[in-house]
Write a protein that binds this DNA or RNA. Structure first.
Length: 486
RNA sequence: GCGCCGUUAGCUCAGCCUGGUAGAGCACCGGACUUUUAAUCCGGGGGUCGCAGGUUCGAAUCCUGCACGGCGCACCA
């Protein structure tokens, strides 16, 4: 028997004894609390001496003979319980002493202070609501092993207050996004997660199958094409917050499923979307952090608008010395990439190489919020061409702390050109580019009915949460990140 | 997929370089204790050193393979 099993057996034996003495710790269906623990702390002066009922998990026990102290933890915080033999009687007191760290109990008692001045509930009666059969992680260090933190997130949440705070902030961030968008008159919608044709991004999809229809379906890589159909349908300001799925590598910045917000706004261009983006993110930070300034991985960042706006080619030129305005062929682009020490595939064209250099050599240096503007048309099959330079699109990406957090453009609404762009993507696909966009005839058809000029935006919500919680890995902001099964 | 690093008690970690009976704190079990809050004090139990091979008289320690995890690269928003 392993030592872990021995500890488990000890607890099972305790459970059996409890049941034999008529206590079934799993029989309770509710426990009526009068206050949360942080409420008692905040309203001590008003509640002192009153009888009240609390519940939570025992996180520490300190026995001192005929008096015992326990740290009780609920969702709001921690408070001390004080159990006295004098108050409880010998038999009940011994049952209290028999409790373990990890047990979930309800207690009624009077609010008081210990001799050392600690706010405490002086227990009059208590109820075991759930017996813990496994030991809690160590009280002082908590869980450090990242594998346990991700795989057994509940232990992480129980013992690491900073982890709990990250996920509370995540919820606040998403709430703040909704507040902002709703206040701006946008309508939140839901579109399919299962797509017959995966579209709206350049990425590999997950495949699944519908049995009754005998049809392959793809988990969505982006909601974009459905949201634009809604603009065709006459809605003018829509957004969706939801999960996207991409069958690609895992990294500190990539999880196979991640949360994205997409926004579509009729009759405005990407300039308006830029303003929306910086105002939105500024609002969220102030709402959640109380300030537009924060530290991410040692860098002081200020989200106060307006953010820097730099042409993509200028940014690449500034950080690498390579001027893509003067580089027209795929071959020249490959040479330039090689000179920067980047490996490129022989099939990579100029557009892909620009994207590659951006991601590897430029993005990590964009610490203060920055819009990069003017993306090559080859890597932007859904974006409208720039009037000044038809080789570029009216597209921007926003970078903060070296992370790409937003991608947006004036949406292509010319059905003929959209069809041609899809056909070009099909050619790339046939040439072996698995991420090239698939043809979506129904979407082209929708554009043929007429889509107003529209600005669109995508925001990587997980990355925004990373920034505002100073988390180095996307796994720190996703409750259950994908791991290999044990 | 490739490279580097990690995996020792329930948890946090030492021990590994330089092979010689596997350690500490917390947790757990028994005892003392009516004001602690990382309680303290006395005593005790607990290990397939990630897994499998190899080298060796002898392997937690050296070598190889594998698993899982982290980081980087590749891939990719």
């Amino acid at each position: 028997m392993t030592p872990e099993e021995q500890l488990y057996m000890t607890q099972l034996k305790k459970l059996k004894q409890l049941r034999e003495s008529g206590i079934d710790p799993y029989s309770h269906t509710q426990y009526a609390r009068t206050h949360t623990l942080s409420e008692l702390r905040e309203r001590f002066d008003e509640l002192e001496g009153q009888a009240l009922r609390v519940a939570g998990r025992l996180m520490a026990l300190r026995h001192h003979g005929r008096i015992s102290f326990a740290s009780l933890q609920d969702a709001s915080g921690r408070l001390q319980l004080m159990a006295r033999e004098e108050q409880l009687g010998k038999e009940r007191y011994l049952q209290f002493v028999d409790l373990d760290v990890g047990d979930i109990i309800g207690a009624c008692g009077t609010l008081t202070k210990s001799r050392r001045g600690e706010i405490s509930v002086d227990v009059i009666e208590f109820t075991l609501l759930a017996k813990a059969l496994r030991p809690m992680p160590e009280k002082w260090h908590g869980i450090k092993d990242v594998e346990i933190r991700y795989r057994y997130r509940y232990l992480d949440l129980l013992t690491n207050p900073t982890s709990r705070d990250v996920f509370i902030k995540r919820t606040q961030i998403i709430r703040a996004i909704r507040e902002f968008m709703d206040a701006q008159g946008f309508m939140e919608v839901e579109t399919p997660m299962m797509h017959p044709i995966p579209g709206g991004a350049l990425a590999k999809p997950f495949v699944t199958h519908h049995n009754a229809l005998d049809m392959d379906l793809y988990l969505r890589i982006a909601p974009e094409l459905y949201l634009k159909r809604l603009i065709v349908g006459g809605f003018e300001k829509v957004y969706e917050i939801g999960r996207n799925f991409r069958n690609e590598g895992i990294s500190p910045r990539h999880n196979p499923e991640f949360t994205m917000m997409e926004v579509y706004w009729a009759y405005v261009d990407y300039e308006a979307i830029m303003c929306l983006t910086e105002e939105l993110i500024h609002y969220v930070a102030v709402r959640v952090l109380g300030t537009p300034k924060f530290t991410y991985q040692g860098n002081e960042i200020d989200l106060t608008p307006p953010w820097a706006r730099i042409k993509l080619f200028d940014a690449i030129s500034d950080h690498t010395g390579v001027d893509f305005a003067a580089i027209c062929t795929d071959e020249e682009a490959r040479v330039a990439a090689n000179e920067l020490g980047l490996e490129v595939m022989p099939t990579d064209d100029r557009g892909r190489i620009i994207d590659e250099i951006l991601k590897k050599r430029v993005a990590p240096k964009l610490i203060q919020p920055t819009f990069l503007i003017g993306y090559p048309v080859e890597i932007s099959p859904l974006a409208k061409r720039s009037q000044q330079d038809p080789s570029l699109t009216e597209r921007f990406q926003a970078f903060i702390g070296g992370l790409e957090v937003a991608n947006a453009f004036s949406e292509l609404n010319d059905p003929i050109e959209q069809r041609e762009r899809f056909e070009e993507q099909m050619r790339r696909r046939e040439a072996g580019d698995e991420e090239a966009h698939q043809m979506d005839w129904d979407f082209v058809r929708a554009l043929e009915y007429g889509m107003p000029p529209t600005g669109g935006l995508g925001i990587g919500v997980d990355r925004l949460v990373m920034l505002l919680t100073d988390s180095p890995s996307i796994r720190d902001v996703i409750l259950f990140p994908l791991l290999r099964s044990e």
